[in-house]
Amino acid sequence: MRVQSNLLRTIVLGAAGTVLVGGLSTSALAVDYPSKPIEMIVAFGAGGSTDTMARIFAKYAEKELGERIVVVNRPGAGGEIGWVHLANAEPDGYTLGLINSPVVEVYPFTREETVGYSLDEIRPLANVITDPGVLAVAADSPYQTLDDFVGAVKDDPESVVISHEGLGGDDHLAALNFAEEAGIDLSFVAYNGNAEATASLLGGHITAFEGNMSEAASQIQEGKVRGLAVWSDERVEPIADVPTGKEQGYDVQAAASRGFAVPAGVPQEVYDMLLAVTREVVEDPEFRAEMDQLNMPINAIYGQDYVDFINDSHDRLKSLWEKDPWIEQ
């Protein structure tokens, strides 16, 4: 529900914003910004899905800003290295970065002792992509619905093995959330990425795969993999024949979101200008078409709404963590 009302608001605001920015960026706000190339920190490696989105976004944003955007990959520690760089960057508007929710908001408490940034040091700008979680099995698997799956786990917990792509990542959290909802215990196998997990699923070495829609969509469309559930409010294109968890009586919401943020302390005019540029790009039909092609569902959340979105998610996950930490302490 929340996402929807946000969408509605952004459409209205977006329309108003476009009109405003047209006039503002040339006169009042033009405090000679930008006057040099802008660095965009990507906390993951070149060629990955976050990086791909960043580079496509940069291509459009360069046109709006009239200045070069240099994409800098600072991968490491599951994104933490890049976010530390973002948090510590000069808040002059010449550094922005991508943040991945829910990962960015869990490190401050799951890695409490060692983490190098805090959420106060990062000011979220706008969310662009929300990639819902998907639970999938191989096409020749006997399980047709979530109920079949849950039944099998209840009969023999050892017969079912499920993959996730990183401890405490969004896939792992989604599966834990589902297990809690269904009242079952799942045995997990950790994979480093989508490729190996998919190969293991197709080869019949694991029972089920918990991943993101964009990763599973092409395999589902080709009929090699059957989606059991998508963890969103409503069914999503292009795999609209996969039912949601909610429809099947398991109210699980899980997704990986990608958006932009700047170091806290960026001057308000610069923040507004970057926000306006982001809005321009995200509302651009050509940009949307490119994202569609990559199976990356756009979910635009701008400015303060996005700040709230990150903070709410942080509070919710933190209370979950305090109740039952998902990484052994």
């Binding site: 060629g47 496509i56 092409s218 395999q219 092609q293 990559l294 199976n295």
Partner: peptide, 25 residues
Amino acid sequence: LGIPGNAVTAVFVGGLTIHGLIPGP
């Protein structure tokens, strides 16, 4: 299969998808 064999081909997949070619049969 759309499953990259190594880091290079994973990047390759990124390059393919940008051009609207989703790896697979």
